[in-house]
Amino acid sequence: MNAPMELARRHRLQWWEALPWIAALACFFAFPNYLAFGTQVLVTILFALSLDLVLGYAGIVTLGHAAFFGAGAYTVGMMAMHWGWNEPLSGLLAAALVAGAIGLASGLVLLRTQGLALLMLTLCTMALLEQAANMGAEWTGGFDGMPGLSFGKIFGLFGFDVLYYKSQYLYALATLLICFLAVRTLVYSSFGQSLTGIRENLLRMHAVGAPVRARQVIAYTISAALAGVAGALFAQANGYVNLAVLGLERSAGVLIVLILGGYGRLYGAFVGAIAYMLLEHLLAKAYPTAWQLGLGVTLIVVALFARNGVIGMFDALRRRFGGTRT
């Protein structure tokens, strides 16, 4: 009889949801030498979170999500390079708008398809952008990209360039927190429920009269905007943009992050990004020539034995040994 209360409770913020943020702040003090790495992890979390919204919740399979990451990165890069516009916060906003607009335009076309056709079209969209960035050398720096970008101070106070790891880390963390809260609100809303409905049963969703395509396009657009913010953060933190920001490798990488952590569950992006990047970092140190082998083996193990990623493993354990459902 208490199903309604249970439903309301699940949407409320739980005490343990503060833990990742406390941990992130603790890392700030505990590992001052690793803050640059930490910033990269935070950027990857945000990127994976944006992918989770479409892949994990709306069930839209994409191999081209780096298109939006790249669009965000190139937006702040080109603004800084050509217009001398290097104020960081407005840069993030501009990146979100540009990436969101590309998401909307491409989503309107490619979300008419499903399955493999959709997968190919997302890939094509990204390839088109990549070629545009490659050929429009006058604007984008072409193959060499835009090295040596510099950005202004945050609120005009906190120095912000490649050498200011501390403000970078906190800036990325604050951005991630705001984006996370937005995504969390979204996935627990009725809109989010309807996305889950689309993922779970498209036929039924049509039969309850939901505007399925419109919902998917909106989710895709929001996700693209968030990926754009992640890309912009990447460009600002590293001070460069090049073609690698929108390649297949980045798209596949973020997909691996999400599969590793568990998709469709918000915190999968966190767990996956940390696991992936730590693994990459440690393996690269131990086996500089063959570190990708270790990553590949890990992925095979996850695919075989933990279909829902690390978080899914915990869920399964909890369901087996604990009484409460998630």
Binding site: T185, S194, G197, V208
Partner: peptide
């Protein structure tokens, strides 16, 4: 709830939690 929310026209509501 998904069906009822669609009928009541709140299926696209983004800010309020579905449980509320």
């Amino acid at each position: 709830c998904i069906a009822v929310a669609e009928r009541m026209g709140v299926g696209g509501s983004m800010l309020r939690a579905a449980g509320r």
